[in-house]
Nucleic acid binder design. Sequence first.
DNA 1: TCTGGGGTCCTAGGACCC
DNA 2: TCTGGGGTCCTAGGACCC
Length: 425
Amino acid sequence: MTGTGDAAFALIDCNSFYASCERVFRPDLSRTPIVVLSNNDGCVIARSACAKPHVKMGQPYFQVRDVLRRHGILAFSSNYALYGQMSERVMAIIEGLVPRLEVYSIDEAFADLRGLGGNLERLGRTIRTQVKRDTGLPVGVGIGPTKTLAKLANYAAKVWQQQTGGVVDLHAPAYRDWVLRHCDVGEVWGIGRRMKAHLEPLGIRTAWDLAHADARALGERFSVVLEKTIRELAGTSCLALEDIELPRREICCSRMFGDRLSDLAPIREAVASYTFRAAEKLRGQRSLCKKLRVGIRTGMYNTGEATYATAQIVELPYPTDDTRLLTQAACAAVERLFRPGYRYSKAEVMLLELCQRGEYSDDLFTAAQPAAAQKVMGVLDAINERWGRGTLRTGAFPNAPGWAMRQDLMSQRYTTRLDQLMKVR
DNA sequence: TCTGGGGTCCTAGGACCC
DNA sequence: TCTGGGGTCCTAGGACCC
């Protein structure tokens, strides 16, 4: 517990982040409703404000295509190169305005405002104004004595945008009570669909109900996670700012194929390419992995068609970050897993049991990665860093594969490709 | 025809130990 | 009929997050 009188957190998030990013470079669309699709143009994962009434989050694109056309809503494939860059710009601006920042996701960050005193709401408005001025992106700011309350404040700033101007500080008890009473318990950070269903029969329907529930009893009945949530809602800080980035403990690369695949060869190519990407991430955080998990599966929604999902964990001869070794292991695994007669839709490569280079000790009986491998991988990464991802790759997968995911509605890489810069006439 | 991708944390239960 | 009591470690799966 870190509960002290002057605890203050802010949660800053970008409104309709992906959709807003698309708009920054297309001012002609400032009044056009837009949505952004998941990888493979599968379903809707972001909506501009005026598109929200017409499309639900997560709806399959093919189901809403007509609705989009009817309402003049424009769809974009997701352009992660663009969103990642815009995110970095936003975070850099906020970092300059607060003492400590925890980047929580691509479009959200917690700030520690402890000890700042003064008018925190005014600081919130400064953040909003500067981010808007320097990036063109709209953000909302929620402030409170705990992370969970800051998160709820941010939600309130969104729901009551007109009245609040996008900034809400819940330090004042009367204001806090009002917001708690007017928020559904399902809107509380950490309360998902399942937990909401457990709480409702107990008469806990609003955030206020939960804030005044018996933390210890519910903690014992359900989980310590719930207990912390309750205490945080009631004003006791249990979750600290985590501004030190730890290396990931597992790394995953999984994707749907552009079309269903029935043959082993293209699936093996896909697995090799996902392994290549996963190994890049692994080296990016200077880790080695001891195990690798490969999975393949058919579609899950096509009733009537045979479904099949399987996976295998492979133990590596020694902790490694060598793409060649990992590719060998992954391809051998997928060959064992593959069963003919199915239409596969997705493959997944996970790197497990990661350790930091030098953290494990090899003994007489344990082999270790040859030093030469490290050099080769270093050169590989340097070339791809300089000339763009995918410049140098293994021969196990082609440059422009037939199984690549669909991205038919992609905007330009305005910020990462010289040949795709914005043109001003 | 077409339904994302990447994580974290916690818990329960099994295996094993004394 | 009676069938210990704890402790640790590991793993799979659930729940949640964006």
